[in-house]
C-alpha cells in the first residue's frame, strides 16, 4: 500500500529535526534514503513508526491517516519496522523473538531456511549473539510480520555479504507482494541491488532524487558525500 508523508515535522521535544518533509512510497516500490550520519534518517523512521510524535503533517497508509495511531496501532495497521538499534528482544530467545511477529511455526521454519544461523540458535538468547546476527534476527522478525509498508533502518550494518544478499532477495519478494518499502541505508551495493528510487537526505531535508535509470554507484556516492 502507498505510504504518503505530507509535510511532516517532528523531532525530539522542542528540537525539530524535520520540517514539512514530504515523500511517498508506492505499493511495490523500494525507496532508499541515503545520507551521512546525523542527517535525521533514524528520526524519520521513528516519526513514521510512531516511536516519536509528529509535531505537524499527515501520514497516510493507503487512504487511511495513521497519525492518530500509537506505535502499536500503526504496526497493527500494517506499518512494519526494523529499528536501527534495539532491533531484537535481548533477553528472549531467538525463537521467542520470531514468535512475537505473530507468524506460524511453518512461516518461522521457512524464514530460518534463508538464515541457517538463526535455525542453529533458536534457544539461545538474542542478546548473546553478535551484532550482525542480531540484525539478521531483527530483519527476519520484520519479514515475518504481515504488513503493507516496511521501514528498514540500516538492516545490513555488520552483516556478512552472503546474508546481505539473502536480505536483498527477501526485500525483493516484499516488493513483488506489493509492499511499500522505505530503506534507510549506507550500504551502496544493497541500494544498487534493490532501490527503485534514491532520495538524498542532508541536515534540513531531502536534497535530490535519483530515478531508477539514474541510480549508479557514483550518483549514490555523491549523495552520501553531501
Amino acid at each position: 500500500m502507498t505510504v504518503q508523508l505530507d509535510k511532516i515535522s517532528g523531532g525530539y521535544g522542542d528540537t525539530l529535526i524535520h520540517r514539512e518533509l514530504s515523500l511517498s512510497v508506492a505499493a511495490g516500490e523500494v525507496v532508499a534514503i541515503v545520507g551521512r550520519n546525523g542527517t535525521g534518517k533514524t528520526t524519520l523512521a521513528r516519526l513514521i513508526t510512531g516511536e516519536l510524535p509528529l509535531a505537524g503533517g499527515v501520514i497516510r497508509l493507503g487512504d487511511r491517516p495513521i497519525r492518530p495511531l500509537a506505535a502499536w496501532g500503526r504496526a497493527r495497521a500494517g506499518v512494519v519496522s526494523m529499528p536501527q538499534t534495539g532491533m531484537v528482544f535481548d533477553t528472549l530467545s531467538v525463537h521467542e523473538n520470531l514468535l512475537l511477529s505473530g507468524a506460524t511455526p511453518a512461516q518461522i521454519a521457512a524464514i530460518t531456511r534463508h538464515f541457517p544461523r538463526l535455525a542453529e540458535r533458536m534457544t539461545q538468547t538474542a542478546g548473546s549473539m553478535s551484532g550482525g546476527e542480531r540484525k539478521i534476527l531483527g530483519f527476519a522478525r520484520a519479514m515475518l510480520m504481515p504488513g503493507t509498508a516496511l521501514v528498514l533502518d540500516e538492516p545490513s550494518e555488520g552483516v556478512q555479504p552472503e546474508n546481505i544478499a539473502r536480505m536483498q532477495a527477501l526485500i525483493d519478494a516484499k516488493r513483488q507482494a506489493g509492499t511499500a518499502v522505505l530503506l534507510l541505508e549506507q550500504n551502496i551495493s544493497m541500494i544498487l541491488a534493490v532501490a527503485d528510487r534514491v532520495l538524498a537526505m542532508d541536515v534540513g531535508g531531502l536534497t535530490f532524487a535519483l530515478e531508477k535509470h539514474q541510480i549508479n554507484r557514483e550518483a549514490v556516492l555523491s549523495a552520501l558525500e553531501i
Binding site: E51, W72, A75, F89, D90, G102
Partner: peptide
C-alpha cells in the same frame, strides 16, 4: 525487555 520494540510488534 524493550518497550519500544514491543510496540513495533503490535503490543498495546
Amino acid at each position: 525487555d524493550n518497550p519500544a520494540l514491543a510496540q513495533a510488534v503490535g503490543i498495546n
